[in-house]
Design a protein around this nucleic acid. Structure first.
Lengths: 260, 260
DNA sequence: TGCGGGGTTGACGCTGCGTCAGGGTCAAGC
DNA sequence: GCTTGACCCTGACGCAGCGTCAACCCCGCA
């Protein structure tokens, strides 16, 4: 007769685990001696070792019961199924590892690589970090809402950066952020932007504008932009005077009325 | 402003998860509107997406907090650590798969392959299944107690089976189990066993006998054997008359007295 | 005005035990 | 006979990360 301590010494299980197995009915409660100690016999050892073997192989306790009583074929089928699940788990973990690896680079937290590249390009153009951070956060929201269309958004953005006037625009924005507001420069900026938008629309460009088809998100980002820097609000006023509305998604203030 | 429903639509998280994050302080509770609804803003979306990204990469929620606020190096270190853990987990799962694969064969549940081979040899010698099952269960207990020495036990057992008299012995045992007790055959068996044990001891053989150095386990298995079939008890009586004691570990009844 | 589909808080459930808390028991040495 | 230390007992909480009720409130639409 074995005490629980001896039992666990032979089987490599913890006492707590054995009691747990009793609790869930996996291992029958053995006889007790006069003082209430559990007394185990050889069949208990055998059953416990079998339970352990299956449990360590990753079988959930709830299934161990059935498996121990299963016939050959059933057992084989269950084993095959378990193996499938384990493989799936491994794949999941590998996927986790891949994501983790991508996280190692700073910005990539929650952003597709194309956006990271775009942000790096902004930095290399001299756009101040605070502004890049603002862009980054906005793109996180956008990427969450329209993951499929990030490719075309980024293509559009990069094409815009090929135009030196857009670069100049970003530089001025950056300076204003870094050195405080200056009404004259704001006006200059608004003129530049209005002009570029007009050209863009005239050229048939509807790239990202049309695709951001969710006023709630756009409003949300606009509100955030407004709150993030006083410059934004003033600039939107100036743009409104020039016939443009919005910020994240700039549009002509009076779009053609929809048909009847 | 977003409701919780919109927030989860954009971030791919469940409502329950978001509330959980609030509960554990991972995502700050946002403002409420007049009717108590939570109203989210863009920064909340950003933070939520970041949390999700880390969580999906396998970071435990408890660490997400720190990671989000960590600096570059700290972040990189944490990521490296995470990757190490994930690799360990993968290794564990692979180990599970290996064990599962071994389980696919029947007997191997909790037994080293050498024992499985030995049991198969017994079967091929015509030993009935019930007796093989008894041996198997006994070896499970023994393997749990002396995992290191299973190799030598098995070598010893296999060597014994090379002797045709041992084979005959097993056959008679099997017949007795299958066709009921027969006093004459039992006596014949006891004689055979006593003779072989004597030769074994005379030849200096102490193989597994000495190695089973734990009376508790030996007693346990003996008791089990006694309980499993009436034949065992009778046979032990007959062996006792011939100067042998024990069953799992058979020994001369009067070992030389230890020195002073 | 009623309905359907949102929203709210609160609490229990799941896995497989670890880890107290607060005791009783056994064997050994003084 | 007393203490000590190693075991044993039951019972309950805790953990991660939510899922899933329950029971009720709120909003927009026909």
């Amino acid at each position: 007769m074995l005490t629980i301590g001896q039992l666990v010494a032979y089987s490599g299980v913890t006492i707590r685990a054995v009691r747990h197995y009793h609790q869930v009915g996996l291992l029958p409660e053995p006889e007790r001696d006069a003082s209430g100690y559990r007394t185990y016999t050889a069949p208990d050892v055998v059953r416990l070792v079998r339970i352990r073997t299956l449990a360590e192989a990753g079988v959930p306790l709830a299934r161990v019961q059935d498996l121990l009583e299963a016939g050959e074929e059933e057992f084989a089928a269950a084993v095959a199924d378990l193996d499938r699940r384990l493989r799936a788990q491994v794949r999941e973990l590998q996927e986790h590892r891949r994501r983790i690896a991508r996280l190692a680079a700073g910005d990539s937290l929650a952003l597709p690589p194309a956006v990271v590249a775009y942000l790096d390009r902004l930095r290399s153009l001299g756009v101040p970090e605070a502004m890049v951070a603002g862009e980054r956060d906005a793109w996180i929201v956008i990427a969450a809402r329209w993951p499929e269309q990030m490719g075309s958004f980024m293509a559009d953005k990069n094409a815009q950066l090929d135009d030196p006037r857009t670069v100049r625009l970003y530089r001025i924005l950056g300076e204003l952020i870094e050195h405080g507001l200056d009404e004259d420069r704001l006006v200059e900026l608004a003129d530049l932007m209005a002009q570029q938008m007009a050209e863009y629309v005239a050229g048939g460009g509807t790239g990202d504008v049309a695709a951001m088809s969710d006023d709630t998100v756009v409003d949300l980002l606009d509100a955030w932009a407004d709150a993030s820097h006083p410059m934004v609000e003033r600039l939107r006023e100036l743009l409104a005077e020039r016939g443009w509305t919005g910020w994240i998604r700039i549009e002509p203030a009076t779009p053609p009325a929809p048909g009847p």
